[in-house]
């Protein structure tokens, strides 16, 4: 479904070139990621804004050194996940400020797995359940592909616009199809509608 092909944008904030490039190559080999090498926390803000990053992988030492910058970025962009790149002993209080810990001694599979899992969970909480559409969702789909607007669908089915929108979200999530033309093809080929 659409979630299969989600390119996550990850910033790696790590001053060591070896660690930075090495982790970068692991990630690029394993999956569909766009990576941005960032030198320090102060630059991270610009990258988050410009490239809409989903995650920052950060050397925890930098948090100690640039605590105020970190807090500022975190407050400003709450949607960005913070992963700690743990390669030596760090205080637990420090590590608790992160959403995820990556141990440098973990296998590549484990590192990639935990990063992807966390990102999928954050971005597609219901992904992975490819359930059939409910009767109500089928009703909405039929009207959508006839070209009706949300307001018209709501009136016809006697439900609120808000409910229509949430049905539409579920339809896209379950089918992996976003565009109206795509949904029409889906409905036709599943005999939900006829021309």
């Amino acid at each position: 479904m659409s979630t299969e092909k989600n390119t996550y944008r990850i910033g790696i904030v790590e001053p060591s070139a070896i660690v930075n490039e090495g982790l970068g190559i692991l990630l690029l080999k394993a999956g569909d990621f766009d990576l941005y090498h960032i030198d320090d926390i102060a630059d991270a803000e610009e990258y988050i804004a410009d490239y809409k990053l989903n995650m920052l992988i950060v050397n925890p030492m930098l948090i100690v050194q640039q605590y105020r910058d970190c807090q500022h970025v975190k407050r400003k962009y709450p949607g960005v996940l913070w992963a700690a790149l743990v390669y030596s002993y760090f205080d637990n209080n420090l590590l608790e400020q992160f959403d995820l810990r990556i141990n440098i001694t973990d296998t590549p599979e484990k590192i990639i797995g935990s990063i992807t899992e966390k990102l999928d969970k954050e971005n597609h909480p219901d992904a992975g359940h490819s359930e059939p559409l409910t009767d109500r969702e089928l009703d909405v789909l039929r009207l959508m592909v006839q070209g009706l607007l949300n307001k018209e669908i709501a009136d016809k089915l006697n439900i609120s616009i808000h409910t229509v929108i949430s049905h539409r979200k579920n339809i896209t999530q379950k089918t992996g199809i976003k565009t109206l033309a795509g949904l029409t093809i889906f409905a036709l080929s599943n005999k939900i509608i006829e021309l």
């Binding site: 490239y51 809409k52 199809i177 565009t179 093809i185």
Partner: peptide, 26 residues
């Protein structure tokens, strides 16, 4: 610069959907 990037995302998405439809539903 941000408008520039939005274009890209949309174009990439539609191309992927085209492939998806051809593989799954046509």
């Amino acid at each position: 610069a941000s408008e520039y990037r939005d274009h890209h995302t949309d174009i990439e998405y539609k191309l992927d959907e085209l492939k998806n439809l051809l593989i799954r539903y046509i």
